[in-house]
């Protein structure tokens, strides 16, 4: 059974997107069971949007 540390590593390393179906199912089951990892996952999705905006901010000549 996948634990928090392994789930978070799969997610944040970028491996989860490319992982075999069995791993993705295991990750989904873990998310259902763990509200902390669900919260982390939502924040990680928001972080992607933050980084896109940050990149735009960095290349803005008015900043």
């Amino acid at each position: 059974m996948m634990k928090c540390k392994a789930y978070i590593f799969q997610l944040t390393s970028g491996q989860l997107e490319q992982a075999p179906l069995a791993t993705r199912v295991e990750a989904q089951v873990h998310r259902w069971r763990c509200r902390h990892c669900r919260a982390f996952t939502r924040n990680d999705e928001a972080l992607s949007a933050v980084l896109t905006a940050y990149k735009s901010h960095l290349t803005d000549p008015k900043k």
């Binding site: 634990k3 928090c4 540390k5 392994a6 919260a39 939502r42 924040n43 928001a46």
Partner: peptide
Amino acid sequence: RDHWHAGMAPAAW
């Protein structure tokens, strides 16, 4: 046990 430490568990932004 590879679970979140108490006090470090994330809350949604």
